[in-house]
């Protein structure tokens, strides 16, 4: 179906997302932070990028900004659960303002993920 890159520092969620998307027929690669994510993007050239916001080394906001500066049409879905004082809403609203195609607040359902991916691919 589509080539999807998942960037998240939480290994469990990363693997879960990979399983879910692979089961839907997508080709999925993962990265554990923004730096690795950008490297993988260059190598893999995915159709969709699903990225967490709060991550070590390079966060999701930096990843989104860099990718959209390269090509404003890249389909990106931002996912976030927030952390302490920083809420998921704030992170996702920020990502939306940067120009991502979809946002998902953690935790999200499989259907919500499917819908976001299909909207991003449309």
């Amino acid at each position: 179906m589509a080539k999807i890159l998942v960037i998240d520092d939480e290994e469990q969620l990363r693997e879960l997302l990979k399983q879910m998307l692979t089961r839907d027929g997508h080709e999925v690669v993962t990265a554990s932070d923004g730096v690795e994510g950008m490297r993988t993007f260059d190598k893999f050239q995915p159709n969709v990028v699903i990225t967490d916001i709060i991550m070590p080394n390079k966060d999701g906001i930096e990843v989104i900004t860099e990718l959209l500066c390269r090509d404003s049409k890249i389909a990106i879905i931002a996912i976030s659960g927030g952390r302490r004082a920083i809420t998921a809403e704030f992170n996702l609203e920020s990502a939306e303002l940067l120009g991502v195609k979809g946002i998902l607040s953690k935790p999200f359902t499989r259907d919500q993920l499917r819908e976001a991916v299909s909207l991003a691919l449309a």
Partner: peptide, 8 residues
């Protein structure tokens, strides 16, 4: 993190 996001 908050200000970084905000400024970005």
């Amino acid at each position: 993190q908050y200000y970084k996001t905000l400024f970005s």
